[in-house]
């Protein structure tokens, strides 16, 4: 069986940056047997090592791109990435975006790599997660579990399905 990995990244002490960990925690109880679920700080070089040998990887992280808080972006990295500055919140060493670009350059990206980015509102010190981000958690979990069940064979997901109709 191919190796599937879900990596929640972020900092649980920086407001909405905790969402990667919160989503991955929920995924643990709902994902197909054999899926490995990890929580990391988001050090890019660590990620390059962590996903080595995995066939299907889903990284969950908070993002800031100026969209409404709670909006989910689900990206198939091998089909072209976004502007990676979106993910440059890490203050130390190599960010997720840089890790992905470095992995591309080195030819070491997993064959199926998705990033589930959830738009955050506040990244201030503290453990409170904003209401809109909390509301996005079940939607993100559903999307990740479904992708795992499909073994990464992504389908086109309408935005309304990702983010509700409101």
């Amino acid at each position: 069986m191919n190796k599937a990995l879900v990596i929640g990244i972020g900092n649980t002490l920086r407001g909405d940056d905790a969402v990667g960990h919160l989503v991955s925690e929920e995924v643990k109880g709902a994902c197909p047997t054999g899926t490995i679920v990890l929580q990391k700080t988001g050090n890019g070089l660590d990620l390059l090592e962590t996903w080595k040998g995995a066939d299907l990887v889903i990284v969950v992280d908070a993002i800031r791109s100026g969209n409404t808080a709670g909006k989910i972006h689900f990206l198939d990295v091998n089909k072209g990435g976004p502007e990676w500055d979106l993910f440059g919140y890490s203050t130390h060493s190599v960010s997720l975006g840089e890790a992905i670009e470095l992995g591309k350059a080195l030819g070491t990206l997993p064959p199926k790599l998705f990033v589930c980015g959830i738009e955050g509102r506040s990244f201030e010190l503290g453990m409170s997660v904003s209401a809109q981000v909390k509301e996005a958690i079940p939607r993100a979990v559903k999307l990740i579990v479904e992708t795992l069940e499909r073994r990464g064979h992504a389908r086109s997901i309408p935005d309304e399905e990702l983010n509700g109709t409101d």
Partner: peptide, 23 residues
Amino acid sequence: AIEMAKKFPEIVKRGLGLKKTGN
């Protein structure tokens, strides 16, 4: 480093491997 890795992937891989030993 990303631009360097595109041109010299094996060298950058060597660096990352070395760093991993420190880890």
